[in-house]
Amino acid sequence: DLSALRVEEVQNVINAMQKILECPICLELIKEPVSTKCDHIFCKFCMLKLLNQKKGPSQCPLCKNDITKRSLQESTRFSQLVEELLKIICAFQLDTGLEYANSYNFAKKENNSPEHLKDEVSIIQSMGYRNRAKRLLQSEPENPSLQETSLSVQLSNLGTVRTLRTKQRIQPQRTSVYIELGSDSSEDTVNKATYCSVGDQELLQITPQGTRDEISLDSAKKAACEFSETDVTNTEHHQPSNNDLNTTEKRAAERHPEKYQGSSVSNLHVEPCGTNTHASSLQHENSSLLLTKDRMNVEKAEF
C-alpha cells in the first residue's frame, strides 16, 4: 500500500496539472479547448457565450486583445492532455480508494470495455495498479461463464418462442383441414349439385314461356288486323247491294208514291245487322237523297 506522504505528493502534482488545464472563465477543466490569436485557451462554450454578448469583436479576458469567431481554432494537443489527466485522476481514485477533492464528473469518461483496460497499462506502473489488474484478471474467467449461461438462457427462450410460433402455425392448418373434411358430406355435395341443376332447368323453362307469350301476342295482333281488313271488305261488298236497293226503291216510288213515303220513313230507323257505323252513315245519306228525289217527283206529278 501507498504511504500517506506519497499520496499527498501525487495529489499535489495532480492539482498543479489541473490548474494549468483549467479554463480562466469557468475555472474547470477545459472541455473542447479553443485557442485565440494571443495563444490563450478557453472552453469553446465559454468563448461563444462571451462573443454573443456583444456585437462585433470582444476582448480576451487575459490580455484584452480583440477576439472574433473566425480567429478561434481548435487545439487537439490540449484536448489530449486533458484526457490523460482524467485517466490519471481515475487511476488515483481506484488505487487509494479516496475521492479526489477537486474531482469532476468523471463517470462519463469511464469505460469498462476490454480495449480501455489494455490502455490503462500505459498509465502508471504502481503496486495498487498491479493489484487491481490481478483482481480484474481473476474476475475475467467468471465473466465468460456468466456470458455462457446468459447465452444458453437466451437460446432456450428463443427455442420456446420458436416452438410456440410453430404450434400457432400448425393449429390453424389443422382446424382448416378439419373444417374441410367435416363441413360438407358427400350427400350434401350431391344435393347441392341437384339443386343447381334444377335451378338451371327452371331458368331454361322460364325463358321459352316468355317467348311463347310474345308469339301469342303477335298472333293476336295479326288476327285483329285481319279482322279489321275483313270488316272493310264487308262494308265494300254491302255498298253495291245498297245501291241495288236504292234503284228498286226509286222504281217503286215512281209507281206508288204514297205507299213509299211511309216505308221510307220506317227504313230510316232500321239498321242492317253486321255493318259498322260507317255503313250506317252512308245509308242515312242515301235515304235522305231518296226522300228529296221522291218529293221532286211528287211535285212534278201535281203540276
Rank of each mutant, 00 (worst) to 15 (best):
N246C: 07
S266R: 05
L5M: 08
S126D: 02
C38V: 15
E214C: 02
P33C: 09
A252G: 15
L164E: 12
L21N: 10
L5E: 09
F106D: 09
Q173K: 04
I30D: 09
V7M: 02
L21A: 05
E8A: 07
V121C: 05
F45Q: 08
Q11P: 14
L155F: 06
S58F: 10
Y260K: 15
F106E: 10
A16N: 08
C63M: 14
S228C: 03
E229P: 01
T248I: 03
T277L: 05
P208G: 03
L158W: 01
E249S: 08
L62C: 06
Q73R: 11
N143H: 02
I206A: 11
A133G: 08
V7P: 05
E229Q: 01
L50C: 08
R162W: 00
L268G: 09
E302Q: 03
E142S: 09
H278W: 00
G262W: 00
Y129R: 09
K37N: 01
C38G: 12
N143S: 09
G274D: 05
T233F: 00
I123Y: 07
S185R: 05
Q11R: 05
E202F: 03
L5G: 09
T36H: 04
H256A: 08
N246L: 03
L204N: 06
E110N: 13
A193K: 14
Q18H: 06
Q261W: 00
T277H: 08
T247Y: 01
K31A: 11
C63L: 14
T160A: 05
N297V: 14
E28K: 12
N15L: 08
T230E: 03
N191S: 10
H40K: 13
N234K: 10
L155R: 12
L217N: 06
I20P: 07
T277I: 02
E32W: 07
L164N: 14
K250C: 12
T235I: 03
L81C: 02
N234C: 00
K64T: 13
T68M: 09
G159E: 11
E99N: 12
P144N: 07
L50N: 10
E8R: 06
H40Y: 09
A279V: 08
E271R: 01
A133S: 05
S35N: 10
K19N: 03
S35P: 09
L21K: 15
V10L: 09
Q147P: 07
S152C: 06
L50Y: 10
D66C: 02
L151S: 11
K221P: 00
L146S: 10
L290M: 08
C90R: 12
L117T: 15
R165Q: 01
R174I: 00
T248K: 07
N52E: 13
N243L: 14
D1Y: 05
R295L: 01
S75M: 02
P141I: 04
C38I: 15
C90A: 04
D231H: 05
T163M: 02
G274T: 15
K192P: 08
R132L: 05
S288G: 13
E258M: 00
K64A: 00
C63E: 10
T68L: 12
N52C: 04
L5Q: 12
K37S: 01
Q147E: 10
L62I: 07
L86T: 04
S266M: 00
P272T: 08
A301F: 10
K109F: 15
G274C: 04
S139V: 08
S152Q: 11
L27K: 03
S183F: 06
T96D: 12
H284G: 14
L204R: 15
D95F: 15
S113R: 11
I14Q: 13
Y104H: 08
R77G: 13
R255D: 04
L137V: 07
T166K: 14
R6I: 06
C43A: 15
T163L: 01
N105V: 08
N12R: 06
Q147V: 01
K55N: 10
N15Q: 07
N143E: 05
F42S: 05
D218M: 03
K31S: 13
D244G: 03
P141Y: 04
C225E: 11
D213W: 00
L290G: 09
G56A: 08
K221C: 00
Q18K: 13
N65Y: 11
K49C: 03
E28R: 12
S150R: 10
S150P: 12
T233R: 07
E28I: 07
D39Q: 08
V10G: 13
K250A: 09
K221M: 00
V7R: 07
R212H: 15
T233M: 15
N246G: 13
G56L: 09
D200G: 07
L146Q: 11
G159W: 14
H278I: 02
C46Q: 14
N157I: 01
A301V: 04
N105R: 13
K44I: 05
F227C: 14
D244L: 04
T207L: 01
L72D: 12
L48I: 05
E202R: 07
L137C: 10
I30E: 06
P57M: 05
N105F: 12
D218Q: 14
S3N: 07
F45S: 10
L29H: 14
K69N: 07
K250M: 06
V82C: 08
K87Y: 01
C43N: 15
F92M: 02
E83K: 13
L48H: 11
C38T: 15
L245V: 14
A279S: 12
T292I: 02
Q147N: 11
V10Q: 13
I88C: 15
E299G: 13
Q168L: 12
G262N: 12
P33Y: 12
L245S: 15
R255N: 12
V161D: 12
Y129G: 14
E299Q: 14
